[in-house]
Simulated assay, not measured.
Amino acid sequence: MGNNNDEYNFDAAFHYKAYRPPLHTIILDRCIGNQIFESALDVGCGVGNSTIALTKFCDQVVGYDPSESMIQQAQKHEMVKYVSNLNKLNPGYSLVCFFGSLFYIDSVMLEFYSDHLTPGGNILCCDFEIIYNPVLDDMGISVSRLDYDHAKNLDAYDTNQTRLIVSEQFEVEFTCQNHELVHLLLSETNIKEELSKKFDSVNVYQPLLDALGRIYPTNQVKLNAGMYYSYYRKTIH
């Protein structure tokens, strides 16, 4: 991994750790409900927001991310172990979760993770998309849309090893404070690039916070998020 990637990952990890909206648990509650799993693997765990959320439903969770910067800043929890090396993953997980990471998984890696599932184990593909358009409009910023599919699920793969249990898309509203919104905006690469241009600076935290204070003097911002999940069971052959 090159220095530019390391720098990006460290910066992204900082903002991810500083604030993420409590949307992971909303999806997990809606999808998993009262199920309890013996062990889970959280693929692409980042700084552990989704990993920590999974502890409500699992006796033990392993969070995997190839970025050392993310793992170094991951949230500690007595039920969680973090790894950045695929060779340290053991087979026998009863749940494999792709929370915002399936978009980057090819067929070979999907089979690799599926092979680490117990017979009859479950796969959860889920993600959320925060809708920033109202905020960006208020700031007079236009941002190009990323080539990213938040709704991607196992339909994109040629596999007969799973059976769909339930799939759903819905929308929720949440409220955050101005400084929390700063961290959300700066965790989005395409938005951060436009903000750097607007404020003519690489260090845009304080100028952005000041600008949001003028736009939202109550220090409360309501945002919507699109929520996506598809829940599968591994078939037993």
Rank of each mutant, 00 (worst) to 15 (best):
E7D: 13
V108F: 10
Y229S: 14
F37E: 13
V221A: 07
Q60C: 11
F37P: 11
N178W: 02
V108W: 03
K56M: 04
K192A: 10
Q73E: 14
Y205I: 10
C125D: 05
C97P: 02
Y8N: 11
N9P: 05
A12E: 09
V108S: 14
A151F: 13
C45A: 14
G213L: 02
H237A: 09
L89C: 05
N122P: 06
S50E: 07
Q206S: 09
Q177G: 07
D149R: 10
T55E: 13
D11N: 08
T159D: 07
S167H: 11
L209F: 15
M109R: 14
R20Y: 02
T55Q: 12
V202I: 09
N153H: 11
Q169E: 15
Y16W: 11
N153E: 09
I52F: 00
G44C: 10
F128T: 04
R214K: 14
L41D: 12
S67N: 08
N3V: 04
G140R: 06
D149M: 06
Y113D: 08
Y232D: 07
A225P: 13
G213S: 12
Q206C: 01
Q220W: 01
K234G: 14
I105M: 07
V61N: 12
R233I: 12
Q73L: 13
G2V: 00
P217I: 01
P119C: 03
S114Q: 07
G120C: 07
L136E: 13
I130S: 09
H179S: 15
M109Y: 15
Q75I: 13
D200A: 13
D65I: 01
A225D: 11
D127T: 03
A211I: 00
D155R: 08
I26Q: 13
V96K: 03
N4S: 12
N85G: 04
L212W: 02
E111I: 00
D149V: 05
R30L: 06
V83A: 06
N90P: 01
G100C: 03
L164Y: 01
P91L: 00
V182F: 04
P22H: 04
T25W: 03
Q220V: 06
F10I: 01
K234M: 15
Y228A: 07
L41M: 10
V83F: 05
G92F: 05
C126V: 05
M79F: 01
G120L: 05
F199P: 08
Y8F: 15
I32M: 08
V80W: 05
E168F: 00
S114N: 01
G46M: 07
P134W: 01
F99I: 01
Y231F: 14
F170E: 12
D138R: 10
N4P: 00
F37R: 10
K81C: 08
A225M: 05
G46K: 04
L154C: 06
N3K: 10
N219E: 08
P91H: 00
I32S: 11
C58A: 15
K76E: 13
L154F: 00
R163S: 14
N34R: 10
F14Q: 10
S50C: 07
P91Q: 01
R233V: 13
V80F: 04
D65S: 06
L154W: 02
I215A: 12
